[in-house]
């Protein structure tokens, strides 16, 4: 078991990484919000989701966060009538990705809020460490 203050920094750093991955997936979804298939009737881009899980870190002796899986949202695709599109099926309907901008933006806000909280923990832990080190300084 390592020093609890280093453990705190490492746990918070794990949290930062998890939220950064989540933010990456959100931006992937937003970027692909109009990515249709390229052949007639093909499926478009499917929205990706991130799931977190708590895993006991033996070295830290605490529950660290990790990415459980990056899954696919199986919500139905929206369809649009656009016969000129190369992805249109025989009836002229094009399948569009199941990405909802509103949900993605809410997800993004939540991820950045948790990211900031983790960052705050790292900052505070660092100031606690420097307070301890300062005890050695300027005595007398």
């Amino acid at each position: 078991m390592i020093d609890p203050l280093s453990a705190a920094s490492r746990l918070a750093a794990g949290g930062l990484e998890a939220q950064a991955t989540r933010l990456r997936v959100v931006s992937e979804n937003v970027a692909n919000s109009r990515s249709t298939g390229s052949t007639a009737g093909a499926d478009p881009y499917a929205r990706k989701t991130v799931t977190f899980a708590a895993a006991l870190d033996r070295e830290l002796g605490a529950a660290a966060v990790r990415i459980k899986q990056v899954g696919i949202d199986d919500a139905p695709f929206a369809v649009e009538h656009d016969p000129g599109n190369p992805a249109a099926d025989a009836d002229g309907y094009v399948k569009l990705p199941n990405v909802n901008m509103l949900i993605e933006l809410a997800d993004m806000r939540e991820a950045s809020r948790t990211y900031e909280a983790n960052l705050q923990m790292i900052k505070q832990t660092r100031s606690m460490v420097s307070m301890t080190i300062d005890l050695l300084r300027s005595q007398g």
Partner: peptide
């Protein structure tokens, strides 16, 4: 007491890291 505060800080950091973990 410093040790106690450090352990509590680590516990809180674990909670914040798992702020979006289902069932935590």
């Amino acid at each position: 007491q410093a040790r106690w505060a450090a352990v509590r800080q680590a516990t809180i950091a674990g909670n914040v890291a798992n702020a979006d973990t289902p069932g935590y």
